[in-house]
């Protein structure tokens, strides 16, 4: 059973979003997503300063059997990407909600998070997908 922390918001495309006290957000991929991909061998993160629309493909996570785009759950500007992933993509497998975060984003609209799924709804979605 995948972990779905209750304090995060989720996108249907299996990304999570954490609201930080300073109004910025942290974004990563969910436990379900990292498990489906298997051992990650490479992560391509966006450059700081890039502006994103919700749904933009903004990162690539690659395992030996798949390479998947990561879609930004919200519109905003990339403040910082997780540089540690360049040499240690396995951080996503080991700790996808912590050390395996992908990027920190300044949301264009502070209310955008409200449109995302709460943990319970995401869990329902996973159950419906058979995961």
């Amino acid at each position: 059973m995948s972990q779905v922390p209750s304090d995060l918001k989720y996108a249907k495309s299996h990304e999570w979003v954490r609201a930080l006290p300073d109004g910025t957000v942290e974004i990563g991929i969910t436990d379900h997503a990292q498990h489906a991909l298997g051992d990650l061998v490479f992560v391509e993160v966006p450059e700081a300063g890039r502006s994103l629309q919700a749904g933009d493909a903004c990162a690539v996570v690659e395992s030996v059997k798949a390479a998947s785009d990561v879609y930004s759950p919200i519109a905003g500007t990339v403040l910082e990407a997780n540089a540690a992933l360049a040499s240690a993509p396995e951080l996503i497998n080991q700790d996808c909600y912590g050390k395996g975060w992908l990027m920190r984003v300044q949301p264009a609209d502070a209310g955008a998070l409200a449109a995302l799924l709460p943990a319970a709804d995401y869990q329902t979605l996973l159950a419906a997908e058979g995961g």
């Binding site: 061998v41 490479f42 690659e62 395992s63 030996v64 059997k65 798949a66 390479a67 785009d69």
Partner: peptide
Amino acid sequence: LTLQAREQHIRRGK
């Protein structure tokens, strides 16, 4: 064979 995730049989249209 390695780095196959770049290739058509995995990445298809991309």
